[in-house]
């Protein structure tokens, strides 16, 4: 039996359809990712699964318990790291963790043991008696992940756990989550709008506008693409677009960040032909093997915003509108 089961979930916030009929399953021990831009409905779905929100319609089960009818059963089997920081700044790191342990009914002895263990894991032992308000963003995140794991949940929900962190801290947090998972073997359900972060998942659901548009392993998604993406920056994108279609028969996609992208079977062979055939000046060209960025671009026809992964140089240079 899957540990998370969601059927036709719909959430309507007074007219705003945040989630429009989402269904999926997550197996025990899996790392499952929700990937989608801001406003896609990721947090809304997580909030329903974590019993913080009632859906407009549809059903959701976590660890065999109905999220609507048996919230207590769901709550005792999950751990949650929220999108925004939810620590008490006026308490010390230790006090925040102790609060959590007692809230989950642990004895003092067990609480002390787990807290020591978790401080060890997140490397914050030397700051345990400092007020959380003196912590950096990365330290707060680490403390929150530690808190989410204190009661050994069967399912750990991570809602954009690296939001607002610098790249170095981000990779640190992921490394740490990966190691923990190896040790504890729990199911992880995470959301992100960073492409590169989604690649650590066993399976990914791409969500846009409240709907799941694909749900597969990262490799499966990439291989379903077949072909390379060529990113172009030219002196006149409009003309280049016409020429690509007219002379070569390619269907270019306009990138929000400026420039064009085409999907071809063999990028290395195509690029020299482009230089010969186009009358516009090509300023930059970049060839990319399929990545999740491209999957998203292909599935939704738009770029993933704020993606920090290894982006083509051309599109990275482009300014935002």
């Amino acid at each position: 039996m899957p540990i998370i089961e969601v059927k036709d979930l719909v959430k309507n916030y007074n007219g705003i359809e945040a989630v429009r009929g989402v269904s999926f399953c997550v197996e025990e021990g899996e790392t499952f990712g929700f990937l989608g831009p801001n406003g896609a409905g990721k947090t809304t779905t997580i909030s329903i699964l974590c019993t913080l929100l009632s859906p407009t319609s549809g059903r959701a089960f976590v660890n065999g318990c109905d999220c609507m009818k048996e919230p207590h059963g769901v709550r005792s089997s999950i751990g949650l790291v929220f999108q925004e920081v939810t620590l008490d700044n006026e308490l010390t790191a230790y006090e925040n963790l102790k609060f959590h342990c007692y809230l989950y009914g642990m004895t003092r002895h067990m609480a002390e043991e787990r807290i020591d263990e978790m401080f060890e894991v997140v490397g914050l032992g030397d700051r345990r008696n400092d007020f959380v308000r003196t912590f950096s963003g990365g330290m707060k995140r680490r403390l929150e992940v530690a808190r989410g794991l204190l009661h050994r949940p069967k399912v750990l929900f991570l809602d954009e756990p690296t939001l607002g962190l610098d790249p170095q801290t981000r990779s640190h947090v992921w490394q740490f989550i990966g190691e923990l998972k190896k040790k504890e073997g729990n199911t992880v359900f995470m959301t992100t709008h960073y492409m590169d972060e989604a690649e650590v998942c066993d399976r990914i659901a791409i969500i846009d506008n409240g709907r799941i548009i694909a749900c597969e392993s990262p490799e499966g998604l990439k291989s379903s693409l077949k072909g390379d993406t060529v990113y172009l920056r030219t002196s006149d994108d409009g003309l280049a677009e016409k020429e690509l279609l007219g002379k070569f028969g390619f269907r270019p996609m306009r990138l929000e960040s400026g420039g064009l992208a085409i999907v071809v079977e063999n990028g290395e062979k195509v690029i020299p032909r482009l230089f010969d055939g186009l009358t516009v000046t090509v300023r930059a060209v970049n060839l990319k093997r399929p990545s999740l960025d491209d999957v998203f671009l292909r599935m939704t026809g738009k770029e993933m915003r704020d993606s920090n992964g290894d982006r083509p140089a051309g599109s990275q240079a482009g300014g935002r509108k």
Binding site: H72, T86, D88, L103
Partner: peptide, 14 residues
């Protein structure tokens, strides 16, 4: 406002 309420509301506590 600072989110801490949700830490309490997701706990298996009535």
């Amino acid at each position: 406002e600072f989110g801490f309420l949700r830490e309490m509301l997701v706990a298996p506590v009535s």
